[in-house]
Nucleic acid binder design. Sequence first.
RNA 1: GCCCUCUUAGCUCAGUAGGAUAGAGCACAUGAUUCCUAAUCAUGGGGCCACAGGUUCAAAUCCUGUAGAGGGCACCA
Length: 565
Amino acid sequence: MIEEILLKALKAIGIEADYVEVVVPKHESLGDVSTPAAMLYAKKLKKNPSVIADSIITAINAPDVFDTIEKAGAGFINFRFKLSYLYGQLLKLYTEGSGYLRPNIGKGQKIQIEFVSANPTGPLHLGHGRGAALGAAVANLLSAAGYCVEREFYVNDAGRQVRLLGESVFARYKEITGTPYNFPEDGYRGDYVDELARDTHAAYGDKFSQSEFAVASEFFIAYAYKQMLEEIKNDLADFGVEFDRWQSEKELFTDGTITKTIEKFRDKGLIYEQDMDNICEKNRKYGNFKESIIEKGVAVWFKATELGDEKDRVLMKSDGQYTYFASDIAYHVLKLNRGFDGLINVWGADHHGYIPRIRAVIKAAGHDENKLTVLLVQMVMLLRGGVPVQMSKRAGEYVTLRDVVKEVGKDITRFIFLTRRPDSQLEFDMEAVKQDSPDNPVYYIQYAYARINSVFEKAEKRQISLSFDNTTDLSGLSSPEELSLIKKLIFYPAAFQTAVRTRQPHMITFYLQELAGLFHPFYYKHRILDEEAQLTRARLMLCACVKIVIGEGLSILGVSAPDKM
RNA sequence: GCCCUCUUAGCUCAGUAGGAUAGAGCACAUGAUUCCUAAUCAUGGGGCCACAGGUUCAAAUCCUGUAGAGGGCACCA
């Protein structure tokens, strides 16, 4: 709104721009909003910022909006709103609700967001939880912004990892039946593996006791990963995270998507065969070549270097097996072919080296590489009272997402993940989180919501109407606390837009903390119900708006908004 | 060896289109409730924005280098 007024003014003095910076000054004494636009264009126009500021000010035509417009500092233009404008906006927020709070940025564009996508070889850990919280929040955010969002979980149900899981369960099963079997070297050792083996034995008895793994593998692999997948689905559901689609990797093999994709790339001249002798030389230069792993033969390669990656990548090994990357190519091309305008992948930061090759794939498929956004999620350090919790995935000893949610709760867990930038490492101290629990920022926000609700209940008992319209007289809202609250509220759409543009929901989190931080002092200093009727009604409407905005923000974060606490 | 990310108050972290005097929570200290929920409020101390250069009217923010932390560099998944 303010931005549009300024853009119009800029245009009037001959500056074409599609963005102008509008900020809330650090000190309220400077103004309600401010723009450094004049300084920005000073160089371009070769004029003094002060002169430009003057001409912008004269060009601004918004007598209903601003009370004062002042030039200040090195060329800032500071604005102060008219009370009538603030009241008008508040009424708009109240009557339009999400129409006001959710500017339509996406305009129906189709976005697909793939997240979590954990191997179905064990329970989710806390890192997955961070990815889940972020992915779900970004999906909510974009969906609120008018994008058509699909949430997908890519199931790695093919390949070595699920095979290892199956074999691990098989080995434990054999143990139970008294026919020892060498436990696979990199096998999964968690309690859940033993449990799966016991379940199998309970259901099928000694049926497989004499089988070789080669014979029984299909059953054990499918049985084990399907059970794990169910568990993952349950964990996610309990964490409040839902998906629209579960894409099986295995299906990409069986329905021919992979071979078709590779042939398409071959037609474009992006595929070649090469035997390993050439590669040995190349790889030696990197100094990380492990000869022992490689077998003699011809492999199928993707010319990733032509599309910006630093190395070409193998799609089919010389032993005839597809690499993981082959199915990943097929998967991303499939996603693009399904007609999305944008793809978002939420990945663990340890996969960042993977980005260039996937971008190469997108270019190879004839799409703009910017269609892909990768959100990297850094690791979570789990602490207990300042001491790192030792985890060994190998030994199957680690604290699961389920454990943490059970101990500290879903709302706190999700909120903490969304209070940090995704790409910074996060310390999650279970003791600290619980100890602080009464003072936890989540509760601070939720409490504001619950308090309002409680006032509303009292109001209803006293037969005070809780519906408001343009006849509601807001002129009683004049204290600093009230005006700050109104300004904060009507800035929600701006905060929302930044969060959408950067795909970073933590901006909503911080906004909510600030909003609650204005509400509580207001509540403390001013009575709502025992005032003269008109003022009570005005304050109730202000509270209604706070409630609407907090409810809106929390729903994007996936945190509950309780009526009572 | 090469590449990526991070380093802001005692602690955990914001500061994301370079803007005015550097922000919050926790912790610490002092105080507030006959009244709509004290899971609240008020006041206070606390900083070489890792370090060194550079670009700019303006740098925590952009560029280069150094140090520290994490991660990545297979015909692994």
